[in-house]
Design a protein around this nucleic acid. Structure first.
Length: 272
DNA sequence: ATGGTGGAGTATCCA
């Protein structure tokens, strides 16, 4: 079967419920993975989302900030939530799709919201950056994620808050000391990806020497003029699933929707 | 040279 997965840092699901409706009306992905829902699970607008055609949900939310969710046309076999760095932050949710979703063989789907890391790229001076680096180390050491990437059937998406490649940012030189593109965090993200044998499918489609962004700061007067973007949002496939990657699209125009998120949705289609 | 914006929840923290 063909599966379309969307990933989007929506920056408050309640404030932008209409934009979620627009995304699913226009693109009709089978599953939407959200980050920064900023919504406790008991306040999540499940009814409105079910009416949009997504009756199945996997939530991991908290009050005020962070929070991830998966909204689906297809039923899940199971739902899992993991905590990292001995914190209660809601930054991960995973589901298994199986026979009930029409799959002959199960597929795991992971959604992550990796810590942004604050402003100062020095783990001694900035605890948030230290947390980000620890989080990436913990992911790289996660045996099950590694096993899934190498030999399992798995897809991993989310706001990873790292732009690893030179052309994942508007200026490699000017961002080398800016959190999201510093060598230390890029190395850790890449080490995690390699440990799991994960394939960066967005870059399967768009060559590494072409610019590719999914985020533009709110702090630009006109994001289209300066176009100072970064690729913070990612879609990875496990090695066995990578040959089934069909296509992806970055919904850049969503950055100009009314009251937009600073991230835009990324959609990826797989033959499973 | 360094501030700019936006969301949550109502002072500031977080991005």
């Amino acid at each position: 079967m063909r599966l379309c997965v969307a990933t989007w840092n929506i920056n408050s699901v309640r404030l932008r419920l209409d934009l979620l409706g627009r995304l699913v009306a226009e693109q009709a992905p089978d599953i939407v993975c959200l980050q920064e829902t900023k919504c406790p699970d008991d306040k999540f607008p499940l009814r409105a989302i079910a009416e949009m055609g997504y009756p199945h949900a996997a939530l991991n939310g908290q009050k005020g900030w962070h929070g991830v969710a998966m909204l689906s046309k297809l039923p899940f076999e199971s739902i899992e939530r993991r905590a990292f760095c001995n914190k209660n932050d809601c930054r991960h949710v995973a589901v298994t799709l199986g026979a009930a979703a029409g799959l002959d063989s199960p597929v795991e789907l992971h959604g992550f919201y990796i810590p942004a890391g604050g402003d100062e790229p020095d783990p001694d001076a900035n605890p948030k950056f230290a947390h980000k680096l620890d989080f990436l180390d913990e992911l790289a050491a996660c045996d099950r994620l590694a096993a899934q990437g190498r030999s399992g059937r798995a897809i991993l998406v989310g706001d990873l808050n790292v732009a690893p490649l030179e052309h994942d940012v508007w200026s490699h030189k000017q961002l080398l000391n800016v959190v999201s593109h510093t060598p230390v965090e890029v190395d850790k993200l890449t080490a995690w990806q390699a440990a799991g044998g994960w394939v960066d499918v967005m870059r399967r489609q768009v060559p590494a020497d072409e610019k590719l962004y999914t985020w533009w700061s709110y702090r630009a007067a006109d994001w289209t003029v300066s176009n100072r973007g970064r690729r913070l949002d990612h879609v990875w496939a496990s090695a066995p699933l990578a040959p089934g990657f069909v296509a992806m699209s970055v919904l850049t125009e969503a950055r100009s929707w009314p009251r937009p998120s600073d991230h835009v949705p990324v959609l990826a289609t797989f033959d499973l």
